[in-house]
């Protein structure tokens, strides 16, 4: 498989009220052409911050303090000016944000908003751009596109607005589409439609998708590969089958087990106690250790390295060290594997 983007030992720091916070702690990642990679984790785990660096949209108080982002033979961490970023953002890598109610300009027609980025990047001549916009609106499944062109965002429902946002992101036929919780603000029926849309666009145009979500139910729908993020690190990376049916990290176990789909009437749902670590402090040992029911003594002393489970599957837990005691994953994992729920 051909690598399209690779992240090496990336570290990001923010300064907040004179203090330093490290939301991304030495992250490495490979993204392959044409795949859908899902990044899953709790809020605050760093999913959005990480992907925002791919399009140079890190907040002003944040900076990359180490590592590389390699894309198309260039290191994106060296990009400084807006002019440099414009060759990437929206053109080669695009992003769809969570809330379609706030990511559109209420004062411009949706046609203009889609046209904007095409003209900015000189994709089509001005006089042909309207036709291209209508084509795009058709592609994302907006009926009656010719008339809808001159409608304003408030004339669209939530699901339709998200389709418009996707059309904007797709306007320049990017290589990578980053979807940041695109369906969290939507109903389940609309969610299913948007997921189908993203899948069909991907098939048709062969784009690579990074799908960010906290809902593992959605991950199962979309992902070829899954990366589980906790406190600014990937704790487990593997194919969807590997992560769902043979998860190795206790955090992955906990995330899967706490899904209400596995709940049994009359019994309590599995919960993850405690809160994620304070990223202002230096984390000693495994970041998940204080919340981990299966934590070993070593977890509190030293951070585990990645252990390889297969060519495509790795996890950052001491449980995979040959010296560790053998621990069975919780029942739900076996249930999941058997499809019994």
């Amino acid at each position: 498989m051909e690598e399209i983007l690779s992240v090496k030992d990336l570290e990001i720091q923010f300064t907040l009220r004179g203090k330093t916070l490290t939301p991304i702690r030495k992250v490495s990642l490979e993204l392959y052409k044409g795949e859908t990679l899902a990044i899953a984790g709790e809020s605050g785990s760093g999913k959005t911050v990480l992907t925002k660096t791919f399009i140079g949209m890190l907040d002003n108080n944040g900076k990359i303090t180490g590592g590389q982002i390699l894309f198309d033979g260039k290191d994106l961490t060296t990009y400084k000016t807006e002019k440099q970023w414009l060759t990437i953002r929206g053109r080669r890598i695009s992003m769809v944000f969570q809330d379609p109610m706030t990511s559109l300009n209420p004062l411009k027609t949706i046609g203009e908003q889609i046209r904007e980025s095409m003209i900015l990047h000189n994709i089509v001549p001005k006089d042909k751009s309207k036709g291209r916009v209508i084509e795009l609106l058709n592609d994302v499944g907006i009926p009656d596109a010719i008339n809808r062109y001159s409608n304003y965002p408030h004339q669209f429902s939530g699901g339709m607005r998200q389709r418009v946002v996707i059309a904007i992101a797709m306007a320049c036929q990017p290589d990578i589409l980053i979807c940041d919780e695109p369906t969290t603000a939507l109903d389940v029926t609309i969610q299913a439609q948007i997921i189908d849309l993203i899948k069909s666009l991907q098939k048709k145009l062969g784009i690579t998708v990074i799908y960010i979500t906290h809902d593992l139910g959605v991950v199962a729908e979309v992902a070829d590969r899954v990366a589980i993020m906790y406190a600014g690190e990937f704790v487990e990376v593997g194919t969807a089958e590997e992560v769902f049916f043979d998860p190795r990290h206790p955090y992955t176990w906990a995330l899967l087990s706490s899904l209400p789909q596995f709940g049994e009437k009359g019994k309590d749902l599995y919960t993850i106690e405690g809160v994620p670590p304070n990223l202002f402090k230096v984390i000693v040992g495994d970041a998940f250790a204080p919340r981990n029911r299966y934590a070993l003594e070593v977890d509190f002393a030293a951070a585990p390295p990645y252990f390889k489970v297969s060519e495509t599957h790795k996890a950052k837990t001491w449980l995979l060290d040959p010296r560790s005691p053998k621990i069975e994953p919780p029942e739900t994992i076996a249930k999941l594997k058997a499809g019994d729920f």
Partner: peptide, 23 residues
């Protein structure tokens, strides 16, 4: 039926073969 088939299933095998019944 539409609601039931639209709900996400945390199982990649089933989720990929899922076809939502449209209402």
């Amino acid at each position: 039926k539409n609601l039931l088939t639209a709900a996400p299933i945390p199982d990649p095998r089933r989720a990929r073969n899922r076809s939502a019944i449209v209402y």
